[in-house]
Amino acid sequence: MPRPDIATTPLLSVKGLRTWFHTFGGIVKAVDGVSFDVAPGEIMGLVGESGGGKSMIGFSIMGLIDPPGRIEAGSIEFEGRDLATLGEDEMRSIRGKEIAMIFQDPMTALNPLYTIGNQIEETLALHTMLSARERRMKAIEMLHKVGIPQPEQRLHHYPHQFSGGMRQRVVIAIAMIAQPRLLIADEPTTALDVTIQAQLLRLMRQQVVESGTSLVLITHDLAAVSQMADTIVVLYCGRIVERGPAEEIIARPRHPYTRGLIDSIPHESDVDGAKRRLSQIPGNVPDIRRLPPGCAFAPRCPRASELCRTQDPVLSERECVGDGSGPPRLHAIACHHPLTVSP
């Protein structure tokens, strides 16, 4: 179901983003011409396998690309400013306050030498004018919100005194406390168990929906993303292969790669020996420094033709088959031979 509360003016508009790494072995085009919009309050899932460039998009938005990496081209418009052109000082004032980020490993996001109270209050001290007492109150309130029992006492504890799931809750609390407009979560639950993962996804969704924050959820887990996202962007070798409303992408994928990803997940119907073989995508993800000409997926694609091996497919938008209610929603595919779907 399209969420009616999503406005149409985008909060974040990425256009033609290219983030390349100049390594000894060649240029790694980690992100190569990626465009997408994130509306206020929208939850967008960036999905792809390792090497797809999904994390580098997050780092590019945050201005965290270090040499030998560089944003070569494109713009990252956020509330009227192009983040790709901002200096480090300006980015620092945006990071944490307007755009926050959550990483896969909560231990690297927390400083082991400070109590979590210190770390939450530090974010507030940086970005607000609150007094020490107010900051403390706010930190307690936030810890309570992310489901940490006895926040008054836990405030004085160090990161190692928390379990993995609790640590990630603390990280979410720190990310959300300055009420950012955009939250980027890079594989936030990958390191955690399924029961904890479900808790945290619910928590994150509840947090962003309550505060109207937009969320870019970067993950390899198609199932998790399909539970959360309004829009899904599928990446392969640094490019968008398919982009559209979540239900549409999952139910009617039109790019052979997306289709392959979905079919690779073992389904309920496979049990009982009836269908023991999974449908698989043959081959391996190619070396991103030596991409084949034409469509990068062509060597693994069952539908590839001569055209695919010579000419890059362009990401082109078409209207969703949709249910006809609400404004028309767009489904973009970069494929010469997209799968046809019955309405």
């Binding site: 609790m166 479900a198 139910a251």
Partner: peptide, 23 residues
């Protein structure tokens, strides 16, 4: 609880009913 928590493709995250608390 384990079965309930496993993400299912294409089903939206439901309310927290049956969600396992604690660790």
């Amino acid at each position: 609880a384990l079965l309930a928590a496993a993400p299912q493709l294409g089903t939206k995250l439901g309310p927290a009913a049956g969600q396992l608390g604690g660790e």
